[in-house]
Amino acid sequence: LKGVVVAGGVLAGAVAVASFFLRNKRR
């Protein structure tokens, strides 16, 4: 169960970083 929580956190972080980079590329 702990691994699932960690994986979810990593996935959420990756999505946040990806969206951040996409926003920067638009400018």
Rank of each mutant, 00 (worst) to 15 (best):
R23A: 08
N24R: 13
V5L: 04
K2W: 11
V5I: 11
L22F: 10
V15P: 00
G8H: 14
V17E: 00
L1M: 04
V4W: 13
R27N: 14
G8A: 08
G9P: 05
K2Q: 08
L22W: 04
L22S: 02
R23F: 08
A7C: 11
V10D: 00
A12Y: 13
V6Y: 10
G13L: 11
V4G: 04
V15C: 15
N24P: 03
L11V: 14
V4Y: 08
V5S: 08
F20P: 00
G9F: 05
L22D: 01
F20K: 03
G13S: 06
L22H: 04
A12Q: 05
A16E: 02
V4S: 10
L1A: 08
N24A: 12
F21R: 04
A7R: 12
V15R: 05
A14G: 04
R23V: 06
K2P: 13
V15Y: 13
K2H: 10
V6H: 04
A14C: 15
V4H: 06
A16L: 03
G8L: 07
G13W: 12
A14L: 11
L1H: 15
A16Q: 06
S19A: 13
A18T: 10
F20E: 02
F21Y: 06
R26D: 07
K25R: 12
N24L: 12
F20S: 03
V5W: 05
S19T: 10
A18C: 12
K25P: 07
R26N: 15
R27Q: 15
L11S: 01
A14W: 10
A16G: 05
A12T: 11
V4K: 12
A12L: 04
G3D: 06
V5A: 12
A7N: 05
A14Q: 04
A16P: 00
L11K: 01
R23L: 10
V15N: 00
G9C: 06
G8R: 03
F21E: 00
G8W: 13
V17G: 01
V6S: 06
A12H: 04
S19H: 15
K2D: 02
V17L: 08
A14E: 00
A14S: 04
K2M: 07
A18H: 03
A12M: 13
L1I: 06
L11R: 01
G8F: 06
F21K: 01
S19Y: 08
A14D: 00
G9D: 04
G13Y: 02
A7E: 02
L1D: 02
L11M: 13
F20W: 04
G8C: 11
V4M: 03
R26V: 09
A12K: 05
A18I: 14
N24Q: 11
F21Q: 02
V15I: 15
S19K: 15
S19M: 15
L22I: 13
R23K: 06
R27M: 12
L1S: 09
V5C: 11
G3F: 15
G13A: 10
R27L: 11
G3M: 15
R26Y: 10
G3Q: 09
V17C: 07
L11Y: 07
G3H: 10
A16N: 02
G8Y: 12
R27S: 13
R27H: 14
G8D: 04
F21P: 00
F20L: 09
R27A: 13
A14K: 03
V15E: 00
V4P: 02
A18L: 11
R27I: 11
A7Y: 15
A12F: 15
G13C: 07
A12R: 07
A7V: 13
S19P: 00
V6R: 11
A16R: 07
S19N: 15
N24H: 15
L22R: 05
A7I: 12
V5P: 01
G8P: 03
V6M: 15
L1N: 05
R23S: 06
K25S: 14
V17M: 15
R23W: 09
